[in-house]
Amino acid sequence: MRLAAAVVAAWLTVGVAQAADSIPQSLTGAKGDPARGRTIVTNRHVGLCLLCHSGPFPEERFQGTLAPDLKGAGTRWSEGQLRLRIVDSSRINPATIMPAYHRTEGLVRVAPAWRGKPVLTAEQIEDVVAFLMTLKD
């Protein structure tokens, strides 16, 4: 019995450690659509990604230089690591400038139009993750 408890505790510890750098499970339980994900990433009013990031989007003239190039994101990170970094990058680095895309609590003076809403829905997050996984070096 005591052994079982120890095993469970160890398993939990490992599980939590993994979860700290990753959200392995899809937020919707389904796979995202990479084509829709690309549209979200390049849309400056939806994904907002290219305000700060650059990426392999030759048709997009004005891209940001505040954050790492998205090229090769699918090689550098696992699907779960990308999901966590989009959902709430501050869980990895509290001082990050990257907005939490799927968090509504702990924010200050959110404009009424956006209050209580995440930047992206769970489905949109999965689409973006699926697209970024296609960005291999």
Binding site: R44, L48, L50, L51, C52, R61, F62, Q63, G64, T65, L66, S90, I97, P99, A100, L107, V108, R109, V110, A111, W114, K117, V119
Partner: peptide, 28 residues
Amino acid sequence: HRRQGQLNLSCSQCHDDQWGRSLAGNTI
């Protein structure tokens, strides 16, 4: 220095830390 809004950024994070870089093609 207060992080604000849905995008959760402070003035300082752009204008002290990122000036000279490009925000969607515009120099901060």
